[in-house]
Design a binder for these strands. Structure first.
Length: 249
DNA sequence: CCCTGATTCGC
DNA sequence: GCGAATCAGG
């Protein structure tokens, strides 16, 4: 088996979904778990929580325990680094359930709905208070509510002005008109997670059609999410994205 | 033992 | 570029 464009796309989709390498290998067929991992790395896909790297920064590593251990430990594993999240994960995080009543002074980030996605955000939302030493140039990610986060430098005394007032999160199906809409709690890997509307809005919901197997979206939305590359000369430069856009490799 | 992902290195 | 072999933590 070779890595056709189609198989690479499926690998990317499932990797982004958080499926394990062995699950991906089984679904693709014809490749081993190692092949999937190797390919994912060669593609530069995001690294995943590794059992080996989980608690890594303990003791100063001796010169060389093993050749592998002596290999350069790069920024890849730096825990404080805020990684990009796949769009769907960001949405899940933004729509994650919060305490029912009004905003508490320090709401604990709700990590239950999307642990993998919420973990880095939680680290960013509640950084160790930069009070330990004076004058360290510490960059802080300050939560501005359900909408997201704003980067705040050490000199920025004022809390950043949120782009919009925090919206009150609504129950999953508060009204009759939501009765047949697909909410966060109905999501699973067999139904289309294409978002309709915006998190926090009363009618925010998901497509809910049957998902294209191996993909997070239905066939129609896969057609929107995964588009064939045009020849370079036929491409128009993408418009600047408000949040900086995905990392380009 | 099983699982996991990361890394290396011969091909 | 590919992936088996290997490593190492859960």
């Amino acid at each position: 088996m070779s890595w056709t464009d189609e198989r690479i796309d499926r690998l990317k989709a499932m990797w982004a979904e958080g499926k394990t390498a062995s699950a991906i290998a089984e679904e693709l067929g014809g490749v081993s778990r190692n092949a999937v991992i190797g390919k994912a790395h060669r593609l530069g896909l995001d690294s995943r929580p590794s059992p080996v790297k989980a608690g890594e920064d303990k003791t100063a590593p001796s010169a060389a325990a093993t050749p592998a251990a002596a290999a350069p430990v790069t920024e890849r594993a730096t825990p404080s680094r805020v990684r990009e999240k796949p769009p769907i994960a960001a949405i899940l995080e933004a729509a994650a359930p919060m305490p029912e009543d009004e905003l508490k002074p320090a709401p604990a980030p709700a990590a239950a709905a999307a642990p993998a996605a919420a973990a880095p955000a939680a680290a960013a939302a509640a950084p160790a208070p930069a009070s330990g030493k004076a004058g360290e140039p510490v960059m802080v990610y300050r939560s501005i509510g359900p909408g997201g986060f704003v980067r705040q430098g050490p000199g920025d005394q004022q809390p950043p002005i949120p782009p919009a007032p925090p919206r009150r999160l609504v129950p999953a199906k508060p009204s009759p008109e939501m009765a047949d809409k697909t909410g966060l709690l109905e999501l699973n890997d067999r139904i289309c997670k294409w978002p309709l509307g915006h998190p926090g809005e009363p009618d925010f919901h998901f497509c809910g059609q049957q998902a294209n197997p191996g993909y997070p979206y239905c066939v129609q939305h896969c057609g929107v999410a995964y588009q064939a590359q045009l020849p370079r000369r036929d491409r128009r430069p993408p418009p600047p994205l408000p949040y900086g856009g995905p990392r380009v490799r």
